[in-house]
Design a protein around this nucleic acid. Structure first.
Lengths: 212, 212
DNA sequence: GGGCTTGTTATGCAAGCGTATAAATACGGC
DNA sequence: GCCGTATTTATACGCTTGCATAACAAGCCC
């Protein structure tokens, strides 16, 4: 009668990570409103009360979860740059392609993104997390474009470089959303091909695409 | 003591529209989770119970509200095509510019879009409304591009035309999002200029932009 | 191996949610 | 001017939510 549940004491960082992962699962499956304290706890295999032991309030958990997903996406994108010995143009091309292929183009990731974005307007902290991610991404893009131009012997003033980064960022974002929301409307690799071709034309460079 | 509240009987369509408008206000201000039955009723100036007299369930109201906003955005975009006597290229340019300027680039509209998108994954009906809007928009774009090509004496097979529409749609979407979320990072008209220049380069046409 | 710390569970609470239902009232037809 | 009807209000119910608190036990220290 009334047997108390057994449990293990996990390391602090491990538990925090588990809770964040459970939160992401919940948001991805049922939207942000599906991420209730009880649902998260159930998925993490703990009881609801424990959450408050690691996060002062639910909002803090959501924030941490969003920061995690932003960070993860960024890392995956940057990983595509790891190949050494490539030309700057090839690196830029790989970067664009990576952002338009699985696992970055993924319904689950989009579900997370959308869920958090919807909440960002009401929550300045989430909004800040997002803006940091956006600016970081665009800066990285601008850097890649600058390198590509330099290696091609082309010059571009700061303003032009900035506008190029904005445009390329828009192409990636727009195609990413299209792919995530309506992946079934595109063939494998089609979005990446369109993205590369578009970026080539916008920047007036050759990244080895087939100019689809 | 216990004075019952006075009220007026409004026409059915008028009440429905008021409730939808109130719903949009709530979603825009506090996200979709801020759109509770009571909050909506308060803003519409009625009591909560009335909502169920016009909509079987809250979900039906949300659906109607989303359909309304999608329809409204589409109408605004199409209105930019109304000018007669323009060349197809100029019409396409006007269309792109309109989608990258107020009132379409607007934090409130984006807030609505994001709120509903976040819920779309959990609600197939909302998802269907969105997809219809997306495909309709892309088709319109493809049509404009085809006209522009035709008037320039260029030919393009169906596949190429489709890919062009996908790319231009991505540019518009991506820049739209950037503008809505971080409008303060851009000067007035900058996004429209970048959009037009990018579309010109991607399509290889001249729409009268300054090729920023 | 006994005691202490603290990670963890269990239980409870007040508030808010969507929905149901009955009473009241505005207003067109006569 | 009254009646009937359908719009609108009022009230309540059952459920879920986030959060608080007290009891408990796991694992480290000595």
């Amino acid at each position: 009668m009334a047997e108390r549940r057994k449990f293990r004491r996990e390391g602090e960082e491990r538990r925090r990570q588990d809770l964040i992962e459970a939160t992401l699962d919940c948001v991805a499956e049922n939207g942000i409103e599906g991420a209730t304290v009880r649902a998260i706890a159930l998925r993490a295999g703990v009881t609801a009360g424990l959450i408050r032991h690691y996060f002062p309030a639910k909002e803090d958990l959501l924030q941490a979860a969003y920061a995690t997903i932003v960070e993860r996406m960024t890392a995956q994108a940057l990983a595509s740059l790891d190949g050494t010995g490539k030309t700057p143009a090839a690196r830029l091309g790989a970067f664009v392609a990576a952002n338009l292929t699985a696992p970055i183009v993924d319904a689950r990731v989009f579900s997370l993104w959308a869920g958090f974005i919807g909440r960002a307007h009401a929550d300045p902290a989430l909004s800040a997390v997002h803006r940091d991610g956006y600016i970081g991404f665009r800066d990285r893009l601008e850097h890649l474009i600058a390198e590509t131009f330099a290696s091609a012997g082309r010059t571009a003033d700061a303003g032009r470089l900035r506008r190029h980064a904005i445009a390329v960022n828009a192409i990636i974002d727009g195609l990413w959303i299209e792919g995530c929301m309506a992946g079934d409307l595109f063939e494998t690799g089609e979005l990446a091909a369109i993205g590369i071709a578009s970026v080539e034309r916008v920047l007036g460079i050759d990244m080895g695409g087939e100019n689809a």
